[in-house]
Amino acid sequence: MFRNNYDNDSVTFSPQGRIFQVEYASEAVKQGSVVVGIVSKTHTVLVALKRNAEELSSYQKKVIGIDEHFGIALAGLASDARVLSNFMKQQALASKMTYGRPIPLERIVTQIGDRAQTSTQVYGKRPYGVGLLIAGVDETGPHLFEFQPSGMTQEMIACAIGARSQMARTYLERHLDEFADASRDELIKHGLLALKESLSQDKELTVDNASVGVTGIAKDGKRKVETFKLYDGSEVGPLLEAALESAELAGGEAREGESMEVDS
């Protein structure tokens, strides 16, 4: 039985002016495993919890590099994300080809937003069932954007989407003031700790299920970009260790001191 008569397609408003199909698509985002993004004055970090379908299968990719200067993290239908990420790769390449400049993030985000809006207004299409965090650096500095199935896009300081992401958001809100001046390592640490908050009791972060993506302004030269770096598998190990260690320190009521030196 249908919940109501107004939720069969995305071209029907409910009497309250809601579009249920779009709201249902947002539910798909909440089914996906959690991803976290944070931005500082110099860097952006994407952190994701990967899931595997069964014990022996590999883990689903959650963080995708799009261009040298930015990447995305997804929660929801991975295949929908692939459509959007392919589109973004094309647009990023087109910008490089025609103007010789990395595409401004605001622009690429608007483009996927506009694309997603179309499928909420036309019969025979369905909204994308995926939420994205888009993080990177352009001419105007580091940015983090959130994309929702409705086509809504917003620039954030920090954001978490996906299953149980509320816990991560609570962590982010609590540490909001620390992000702006955080170093690259501290930002990764915050990302991993926020992610850890939203894990269910029986789970923990491992080198298998955690992904980290980082971009930033390179130290040398004023407009040089630190190429989007994806940490997966064994590479995540040192990052995890540093984060968990600092959490323990903080737990043992010692105010977190110098975070462990981690070389990328």
Binding site: E155, M156, I157, R169
Partner: peptide, 10 residues
């Protein structure tokens, strides 16, 4: 709608 939104953007 959220504290996490970047002020002055959007």
């Amino acid at each position: 709608t959220s504290k996490l939104l970047k002020p002055g953007a959007n």
